[in-house]
Structure formats: structure tokens, C-alpha cells
Design a protein around this nucleic acid. Structure first.
Lengths: 182, 182
DNA sequence: ACCGTAACTGTCCGATCGGTCAGAACTGAC
DNA sequence: GTCAGTTCTGACCGATCGGACAGTTACGGT
């Protein structure tokens, strides 16, 4: 054995992401991951300080991408704000499908996770989707788009090919937000 | 102690629903429920054959209500079908908020649950929301409404008062489905 | 060839899980 | 008061969890 450390870490993350996205974080034991990787459970804990750290490392890119999206639309307003946010959000969920899947599998415990501030990022996303409006219709519609894209992306790809899925999700989301295309 | 059996069962179900909806099924131990009820863990297992049976009993009313909805719209077509389905679905998720919450907390393990065929009911709902269409745009939009109402109802009630939430969810959902009000 | 270090593992640990069981505690009918 | 039956509990069980740790193996620089 004794592969390079970074290669081993990569394999662990790959197996963990697959198993977490199927069985959830709690539903996947360190032994499950170790068996999938083909190493001992102790080896996992040599490369990662704990089970939680694996999760953190898996979700950090998603979190960063979301933060980057919010930063990108921070200066926009009106129709441009909504359009850019919707497209960015749809692309993000399609790119990080399995991460999204495991994210809403254990969403309640994520909220009290120290290293992951997904919830406040979700708040920012909600705000942008609502076009910075605080009126109830806009807020409700924003919540609905948040959940709609979330679940549709996380669903097993039986729905439609990715290209079609992407286009239709964007169109549907803009309809939900009562956005008249510019 | 020694309350009546039915009263005790009711208290257990009440506590279990609250704890399950917050921490999930796996995240709630029998000891947690027992402590909340104020009895011993063994007492729970006297009234219920196992932890799973508590879950089954909690979700059966939701399942029945969904089946009843599908039965009710089975004969409809076109605009009436979509309208009735959306309104019925929104009302259902608002009525069974906490059940919905715990349902999508552990949705992957639900799919292989023997006593609960939620997944095939969800398929029926999807079909009705899509207006029985098999075209990709309609299917994607149906998926999105499914997830949107799901999550918006499950979200903690910070969004809007229930009456406003209901009306806006219905309007937004119909927009998502590109439904022109009759 | 040697050796320090990085990579890895077998084994053990305490905690907690769902569930079992014999028996105590309570209840209502008589 | 007595007693049968329902309700309830403490103690215990095997399984499994995340994690700790000493010891072993493999590798690269010298």
C-alpha cells in the first residue's frame, strides 16, 4: 500500500461523497467508507481528523461556489439580479448534485455545524431570488424556487437530460418568480 | 402512573412527531422520546412493536390523505386537474407540516420502507401536476412544484402567516406550471 | 545498507443504539 | 381485601458507532 497522501485523500473523499449522498451522513459509517476505499477504518482517521472533517471538506467547494455567486450578484438590481441569481443557482446545483443531495439529507444538523454556514448563505440566496424585496409574495416565491431547484437537481436524473433540465429549470424558476424575460 | 393505553399512545406519538421532525428519525433515539414523554424506554416498546412502527403510525395519515387526493383528481383533465392537484397538495403539506418535514429528512430510507409506499404516491402526484403530460417541460415543472411546496411548507413558519403562505404558494405553483387561471 | 519519517493497520475502548425480559406497580371487578 | 390482568420499569443484551493508540510496513534521502 502506502499510496501518496493526496491520492489517498482523494479516494476517501470520492467514496465518502458517493456513500453520503446515497445513505446520508449518519447512515454511512467510517467502516462503510473504509470498505469502499479498500483500507482500514484507522487509515481514514489518519488522513482526516474525524468523520465531520470529511463532511466539511466535501461541502466546502459547494459553500465557496455559493458565496462566490452571492458576491457576483451583490451589485445587481431588478431583473438582472433575479436572472443572474437563478441561472447561477441552477448551474451550481447541477454541478454539485451529490453535495446538494447530502446537504438536504441532513439539513437540520448542518444548521448547527460550526465550519459550515450554509444556512446564512441560503438566506442571502433567498434575498437575491426575492429581488431584495421583503414583501410576502416575493419571499414565498423565492422560497419555492430555492426548494424547487434544490430537489429537482437532487432527484435521480430520470427527469430529463442535463441540458434540457437546465433550460427548463431556469424557465420555470423565472415563471415562479413572476419574472418577465427582458 | 398507568394511564389509559390510548392516552399513552397519543402522548408517545405527539412527542415522537415533534422530535422526529426536528432531529430526524435516525437522530432521535427511543430514550429521547421516553424522556420527552416522561416514561421509560421499555414502556414505549410495550405500546409499539418497535421504533419503525411509531414512524409508520405517524406517516399513515399523511399517506392516506395523499392517496385520497390522487383518487379525487383521478377523473379530471386539463386545467381543472392541475388546479385541483395544486390546491390539494398545498393544503396537504400545510396540514401535515411536521410529517412532511420528517418525511424529507429521511427520504432515501423511506423509499425502501415496506409499510410506506410514499414514493409511488409521489409519482402519481408528479403525474397529476404535469397534467398527465410526458413532455420534458411539463415534467420538470411538476418536479419543481413538488419540491417547492414541500420545502416551503417544511420551512419554519418565518416566511409568512399560513393564510398568505397558502395563497401565494398556490399562485406561485400555478405560475411555475405555466397555468393560465381559468 | 541504513534509518528517519510518512503511511497504514489491528486492537481495544467507552458510549449509545434498538430491543428483550422477568417482575414490580397499579387498576378495576368482585 | 383479593386477585387477574393491564401497564410499566430496571437491568441487561448484542451490535455498532466514532475514535485512540501502539506497533508495523513501506518509502526516500543519505
Amino acid at each position: 500500500m502506502a499510496r501518496s497522501a493526496s491520492a489517498m485523500r482523494g479516494q476517501i473523499l470520492k467514496s465518502a461523497l458517493r456513500l453520503f449522498s446515497v445513505h446520508g451522513f449518519r447512515g454511512t459509517s467510517l467502516q462503510d467508507i473504509a470498505s469502499d476505499v479498500g483500507c482500514s477504518k484507522a487509515s481514514l482517521l489518519y488522513h482526516f481528523a474525524g468523520k465531520e472533517k470529511i463532511l466539511t471538506e466535501l461541502l466546502t467547494p459547494t459553500q465557496d461556489a455559493l458565496a462566490e455567486l452571492l458576491d457576483r450578484v451583490a451589485g445587481l438590481t431588478g431583473g438582472r439580479l433575479v436572472e443572474e441569481t437563478v441561472v447561477g443557482y441552477v448551474d451550481l446545483t447541477l454541478r454539485f448534485r451529490r453535495e446538494i443531495r447530502l446537504l438536504f439529507e441532513d439539513i437540520t444538523e448542518m444548521s448547527c455545524h460550526q465550519d459550515l454556514n450554509v444556512m446564512e448563505l441560503a438566506d442571502g440566496l433567498l434575498d437575491a431570488l426575492a429581488g431584495r424585496s421583503h414583501r410576502a409574495p416575493a419571499r414565498v416565491a423565492a422560497w419555492m424556487v430555492l426548494g424547487a431547484v434544490f430537489i429537482t437537481s437532487a432527484a435521480d436524473g430520470e427527469v430529463a437530460p442535463d441540458e434540457v433540465l437546465r433550460a427548463e429549470m431556469i424557465r420555470s424558476a423565472l415563471r415562479t418568480l413572476d419574472h418577465t424575460p427582458s
